Computed example of a mutant assay.
Amino acid sequence: MYRIVFFASLFTLAGCSATELNSKGSTVRIIDNEILAAEIEESCQWLGEVNGSQGNVFTADLTSESNMMAGARNILRNQAAGIGANTVIIQRHQSVESEAFIGTGGHTFIGQAFICKR
């Protein structure tokens, strides 16, 4: 019984913070400006689509809105770095309302990853 309570508590606390940004992900810049996005699409090499999501029905009410958003962006940047990108153009941001509780249940960012000469 104590193990169940321990792991349930650990799972709950893990949901309260944003996913960490790794060292490679910290070098990826995010662009959500249409003018800059057009320039990047012309002058950089496209590597693929990336996405990042944070939040779920179990942790949504235990995680702040800002932590869910930051975590989703961090996952996006980490994923982009993992395929060799240094720039991401955000195509879409979606927040999902929690059906079980009050407030936002999670955030998702979808973007296009590029390698650009800086």
Rank of each mutant, 00 (worst) to 15 (best):
R77G: 03
K117A: 10
G84P: 06
G111K: 04
F114T: 12
T63I: 06
I40G: 12
K117V: 13
M1R: 11
L47F: 02
S64R: 11
S43A: 10
E42R: 13
V5Y: 10
I110L: 14
V57L: 15
N78L: 12
G15D: 01
Q94T: 13
G111I: 05
Q94M: 10
I4N: 07
A14R: 14
G84E: 07
F6E: 09
I31V: 15
F7T: 03
V96G: 03
S9D: 03
A60P: 08
T108M: 15
E49H: 11
R77W: 04
R118W: 06
A60W: 15
F11R: 09
A113H: 04
G25D: 00
G52A: 12
H93S: 07
T12D: 04
V50F: 00
S9W: 09
A18V: 08
N78C: 13
S98R: 00
S98F: 10
D32C: 01
A113T: 02
S64Y: 04
L13E: 02
I4S: 10
G48Y: 05
S64G: 08
T12V: 06
L13T: 06
N86I: 03
R73T: 11
T27Y: 12
G55I: 09
I75M: 13
S98V: 02
A81S: 10
M1G: 03
N78P: 04
F58D: 07
S53E: 13
I90A: 11
F101M: 01
E97D: 10
Q45E: 14
A8G: 00
F109W: 08
A38I: 00
I115V: 08
F58W: 09
G82R: 00
H93P: 01
F58V: 13
C44E: 08
S17P: 01
A18T: 01
G103F: 09
A37L: 08
V5D: 10
S26F: 12
L13S: 09
S43M: 06
V28T: 09
V96L: 15
I75P: 02
T104M: 12
N33W: 00
G105R: 12
I40Y: 13
